[in-house]
Write a protein that binds this DNA or RNA. Structure first.
Lengths: 155, 155
DNA sequence: CCTTGACCTTCCCATGATGGGAAGCCCCAT
DNA sequence: ATGGGGCTTCCCATCATGGGAAGGTCAAGG
């Protein structure tokens, strides 16, 4: 019946075939059943799981967090507190990243406003970048490197 | 006189020695002068450049954008319009990323609020993730994959 | 029956900016 | 001269994703 190939599953769930294979290889998803020729097959329940993963991904959860969420999802007796805790960590992480990007954006907006942006060479933006003392305060606040890394959207 | 080793330059500018080497290897910075033994040496002007890079990095600019900014900085006759254009692209990029993260955060906050988070298994958060139809609208709006990738802070 | 084209498989590589760590050389102070 | 710390290069990992090659599979149509 609903024995679907990986490409079709990708189309129906919005998770690319590449990523479905990768999720399987890294253990987020259990190994798919295979046809005699070795083709992966997916049923309705698999599609449901894939959509779950897709939705969590769209909410910014890491694959690691999604693994935890999947485990809780499968455990019908789980206490909702565990789920809420994961969600709140994610919210806090998102808020931290937003605040950092917001700080950058505001600084740049201030600089861009003061730059007339014409053919003349005077440029407060470059002047700022070339200024020696950018008080170490914001720098210190960013010492958590993973933050800075993430902020720049390192892929 | 001010011929400084890479470790000292790192300490004085806030750019790690690893990254200084990497910036040189990838062409963002010109090859450093070397001692007879092959040690890199940096003078005050190099430190100035490193601080420029550091500041731009803290404002979220990509290395590619920083290369452009450096070129403009060195060209004393540049029109400030070019600099402003780069800054405004960066602002737009930051605003896009903020809006995306904000959307995720708001959705999650709504879900977390409605989850009592105690020992009972009922959980609106998991219910949402498991819901089949997350109207394709937001999904379509995100078709630009690089957006989604960045949003998750891949990095 | 055979070809064609669309699909599937695995495997390797790239991304971007960063850190970790190994193996080996260098320099200075004791 | 020895020890410890700093320097060099080179390789590997991150995180989630895509690209692409080489080769097997399948279904439709000649």
């Amino acid at each position: 019946m609903s024995a679907i190939t990986i490409g079709e599953a990708a189309r129906r769930t919005g998770v690319s075939a590449k990523m479905i294979r990768w999720y399987e290889a890294t253990g987020l998803l259990p190994p798919a059943t295979r046809s005699e020729a070795g083709y992966r097959h997916y049923d309705d329940s698999d599609l449901h799981t894939l959509r779950f993963v897709r939705r969590a991904r769209d909410l910014g959860f890491s694959v690691e967090a999604i693994a935890d969420l999947l485990a809780l999802w499968r455990d019908r007796a789980r206490p909702s507190a565990g789920v809420k805790a994961i969600a709140e960590e994610q919210i806090a992480d998102l808020r931290r990243r937003i605040a950092e990007l917001e700080g950058m954006a505001r600084t740049l907006e201030r600089l861009a406003e003061s730059c007339c942006g014409d053919e003349r060479p005077e440029c407060p933006i470059l002047d700022d970048l070339a200024t020696e003392d950018h008080s170490p305060v914001p720098r210190r606040a960013m010492r958590g490197l993973s933050e800075r890394r993430r902020a720049r959207g390192m892929v």
